[in-house]
Nucleic acid binder design. Structure first.
Length: 493
RNA sequence: GCGGGAGUAGCUCAGCUGGUAGAGCGACAGCCUUCCAAGCUGUAGGUCGCGAGUUCGAACCUCGUCUCCCGCUCCA
């Protein structure tokens, strides 16, 4: 039995997480009744609460705690030139081909270009040039079948397997496109944004001027982004539609590394304060930097499938604003009174995946422990969520549904529901109701018993320890309010 | 995309070499019960992922397809 369980867990490290997320209304697969849509997921009744709490916590720790950070909510649709300027049009769309024997994937255009370079090197520059021109013409005509034929005709083989057993050449467009307007000509093609950052960059001057912002300052945004991932895997870790929580911090050139270090530290504290285990968090420096960055680090969480990125902190230099300045022909500059200089600000970006933060939190919280002794020993599963982000803050439970207990419980529920997301339940035994709350991570269960009838006290049960304390019912709002306050988290930042 | 594994009730799964489906848990209703998935009674819920084919007959065999999981590959 034990060995069987172990094997299952090894085979599917996320299986328990996925099963729990579905069973208790956190995450469902998109369009499940129609067999689902690959790499797209929906948040259920408790999932949406948890996710909203995470987003709210992030938002407030950015725009409420920092008087030099403000927020925006930019549209998902943006002018097509934005993505030319950002480099996504060129960088996010390649003709790819696989070698079936080595199972290696290559850019088809690079394979041919390398071959052309070989000709040049071998003293046949005309042949090389002719090949490049042919390739250019085929790519222009988007004739991918001909590109494959060209690879075969040129006897290009996979450097690993040494064979020419190629799949079809496929065009990978990592950006989703759609049409705006009713006329379906090329100029109306626009993209669903692959990142939220550009919505901040194009509003840099709007916000700076209307908000009278002085550098250094930041613009925060939470929003959906879309990416046609080649391979979508690992549950909600890599989805086609996902949500980012990004903050672009505009700084004076030359100061970017100080800010980079500071945000690196602050953001790590945030994840820890949220409740992620410190030993499951680590920095991962980027060896290979993206085209826009001069320093980059990931904050990684140890998921059941290994350490993976949940947040990236990038020093983006002045790349984005300079690009927009060039493409839009509009100055993206700031006059710095202190140094009496006009410059394009440098940018330090913090970008956390809301869904990844959710998944990390969920994995981290899902706890199984053995309780009881002897014959009463059993497994107990609960979600050890920080009370501030738990979907439900308190469950109000009359010990049974007679002798006036439900009436008092209802009164308490009515009193608390304006401040906290609460649940009232009177059906079934109290033990079953406790367990149900444990499974969705409710930090407090308030039981109304016969003593309540006498002295207006109730028991309040703590999820993690299952211990109970007896308090007067008028103290409940204070106890719960204190425990679920974001302040506890903010103080750790 | 390639390779491997899987898909049966809300969940976990059983169902032998083909004979049109079961269990436990859960859910719901009621009874009982003053504290951790208790007990009793009852109820609902599945065209066995979907579509073809073979067969007198398919959850089971064959093909296709969708989805999930694992590995590889890709990933501003």
């Amino acid at each position: 039995m034990a060995s069987k369980n172990k094997k299952t867990q090894e085979d599917n490290p996320l299986k328990n997480v996925i099963a729990h997320a579905k069973e208790y209304g956190f995450i469902f697969q998109s369009s499940e009744v129609y067999d689902g849509l690959q790499a797209v997921y929906d948040y259920g009744q408790y999932g949406v609460e948890l996710k909203n709490n995470i987003k709210k916590l992030w938002w407030q720790s950015m725009v409420q705690l920092n008087d030099n950070i403000v927020g925006v909510d930019s549209a998902i649709f943006m002018h097509p030139t934005v993505w030319k300027a950002s480099g996504h049009v060129d960088g996010f769309s390649d003709p790819l081909v696989d070698n079936k024997d080595s199972q290696k994937r290559y850019r088809a255009d690079v394979l041919v270009e390398d071959k052309a370079a070989e000709y040049v090197k071998a003293g046949e520059p005309e042949k090389g040039k002719a090949l490049e021109q042919k390739l250019g013409a085929l790519l222009e005509a988007e004739d991918l079948e001909a590109v494959r034929q060209l690879i075969i005709d040129e006897e290009i083989v996979c450097p690993v397997s040494g064979t020419d057993n190629w799949t079809d050449v496929r065009q990978f467009n990592l950006m989703f496109s759609t049409e705006v307007g009713s006329v379906a000509d090329e100029s109306s093609t626009i993209y669903l944004r692959p990142e939220t950052a550009q919505g901040i960059f194009v509003n840099f001057l709007n916000v700076q001027k209307t908000g009278r912002m002085k550098i250094p300052f930041g613009i925060a945004q939470i929003g959906k982004a879309f990416r046609n991932e080649i391979v979508a895997r690992q549950f909600t870790f890599r989805m086609r539609e996902f949500e980012q929580m990004e903050m672009q911090f505009f700084v004076r050139p030359g100061t970017e590394m100080e800010w980079y270090e500071q945000w690196k530290e602050t953001r790590m504290k945030w994840h820890k304060a949220l409740g992620l285990d410190a030993e499951k968090l680590q920095y991962h420096d980027h060896e290979k930097l993206a085209h826009y960055a001069n320093a980059a680090v990931d904050i990684e969480y140890e998921f059941p499938f290994g350490f993976k990125e949940i947040e990236g902190i990038h020093s983006r230099s002045d790349f984005d604003l300079t690009q927009h300045q060039e493409f839009s022909k509009k100055k993206q500059q700031y006059f710095d009174d202190e140094v009496k200089q006009n410059y394009v600000p440098y940018v330090v970006e913090t970008s956390v995946g809301a869904d990844r933060s959710f998944l990390a939190t969920f994995c981290n919280a899902l706890t199984t422990e053995t309780v009881g002794e002897g014959e009463k020993q059993k497994e107990r599963t609960f979600l050890k969520l920080h009370p501030a982000i738990a979907p439900v803050k308190a469950a109000i439970l009359p010990l049974n549904k007679k002798d006036g207990l439900p009436e008092i419980a209802q009164e308490i529920f009515e009193d608390l529901k304006y401040d906290f997301n609460c649940i009232y339940e009177e059906k079934q035994t109290i033990g079953k109701r406790y367990t149900r709350q444990d499974l969705i991570g409710t930090p407090f269960c308030i039981a109304i018993d016969y003593q309540t009838l006498e002295d207006q006290t109730v028991t309040i049960r703590h999820r993690d320890t299952m211990e109970q304390e007896r308090v007067h019912k008028d103290e409940l709002a204070g106890i719960i309010g204190n425990a679920v306050s974001f302040k506890n988290i903010f103080k750790q930042l």
